[in-house]
């Protein structure tokens, strides 16, 4: 690294150290562990700015924040998983001595045997690290993949297929068909009237139709078929645009949240 980089880094560290001192002075009397608290607030402000600096370019501060974040979050989820799943839910059903060791109430019962199997499967998974018996780790994987494939098969067949078919069953001629005379005499031209409903139903039907044709793989997309597929992708793009526009506001409010943290909790400029 260049000398100037070191100088910049040192300057940043000094700045944040000063901020720590000022923050501690500000918090003195307000909270009990004011030095620790001031450090933590300053440090999280530092991390916030370090991550934001990524927008300019990759830099040592970002790298520091990123690597720290990875280590801490990996450990966090491991601890949470261990305490909530293993200790709170598994061990009380597994064995009395272990429950006593972890100071959780034992709730064994006659069916606790069924909880030994996932433990065995879990241990088989760990055997992956061994070169010789690593292939045993495929058993738990096969169990997970098989179970969830079966689950997803019926679940999606129902929600994304059968239910979607029946929801396309909308009358394209307005309400119930009772002859031309009835149809024309009830045709309503207002914005929320029957005509706009008929139009909407047609757009939905044709949209679904063309969209499905776009996803048709085993036929060449030429001629009329190709044109329908083209319309299909246009309709898809409309939707994606709408979804894009829909998300923008939510994302901006996230940024506002972070800026509020910097100016309110750290610098105390906004009350």
């Amino acid at each position: 690294m260049k000398r100037s980089s070191y100088i910049i880094m040192a300057a940043v560290v000094v700045l944040f150290a000063l901020s720590w001192i000022f923050k501690a002075m500000a918090l003195d009397g307000e909270t009990e562990h004011y030095i620790t608290r001031a450090f933590l607030v300053t440090f999280s402000a530092f991390l916030t700015l370090a991550v934001l600096s990524f927008l300019y370019r990759d830099n040592p501060f970002y790298k520091f924040a990123e690597h720290l974040f990875v280590g801490i979050s990996a450990a966090f989820w491991m601890c949470v998983g261990f305490w909530t799943t293993i200790v709170q839910n598994l061990i009380p059903r597994l064995s009395q001595p272990l429950s006593e060791f972890f100071e959780v109430p034992y709730i064994g019962g006659s069916f606790s045997i069924r909880f030994y199997l996932p433990v065995i499967l879990g241990i088989l998974l760990l055997l992956r690290l061994s070169r010789k018996v690593g292939w045993l780790s495929r058993w738990p994987l096969a169990f997970i993949v098989g179970t969830t494939a079966g689950l997803n098969f019926v679940r999606y067949l129902r929600s994304d297929f059968i239910q979607q078919i029946s929801s396309t069953f909308v009358p394209l001629l307005g309400t119930r068909w009772e002859g031309f005379g009835h149809f024309f005499s009830h045709l309503d031209l207002s914005a929320t009237g029957q005509l706009s409903m008929i139009l909407a139903n047609w757009v939905i039907f044709l949209g679904v139709f063309c969209g499905l044709i776009y996803f048709y793989f085993s036929k060449e997309h030429t001629g009329v078929f190709g044109k329908a597929s083209r319309v299909g992708i246009w309709v898809l793009m409309f939707t994606f645009g709408a979804s894009f526009g829909y998300t923008v506001m939510g994302r901006i409010s996230l940024l506002v949240g972070r800026i509020t943290f910097l100016f309110k909790d750290w610098l105390g400029l906004i009350s």
Binding site: F161, Q164, I165, S166, T168, F169, V170, P171, L172, L173, R176, W177, F205, V208, F209, L212, F215, Y216, F217, S218, K219
Partner: peptide, 22 residues
Amino acid sequence: QDYAKAAIIVLAIVGIVAANFG
């Protein structure tokens, strides 16, 4: 998968006619 899609389109058309005639 493609046949299933074709089936959906056919069923949808029949269903729409059915919906119109109640």
